[in-house]
Amino acid sequence: MKTEANKDQAIITVVGQDRPGIIAGITTLLAGHAINVLDINQTIFHETLFNMIMLVDLAACTQSFDKLQQELEQLGRQLGVDIRMQLTAVYEAMNRI
């Protein structure tokens, strides 16, 4: 499996009602743990539904994966959006041969 190579990369997905400060809030949290954002794809559906997919590099991350997940979930609650983070391996396994 090719999973080992991308062990340090994760996908963060954000879905919810659009409002100012969502990207700022998330990137500030990530920067605080030395997490580099490799790519961002952001769309607004039906004028108000915010949808963002971020590819991030956790190689230099100063926080544990579990704690980071918890912090993102908590931030999601504050911002009124659903934030999830998963290692990229699962997307790679299911969508690439």
Partner: peptide, 12 residues
Amino acid sequence: MFDPYEILETQR
């Protein structure tokens, strides 16, 4: 980068 459709499909 992954196709956003693939990511959303996997999550669904």
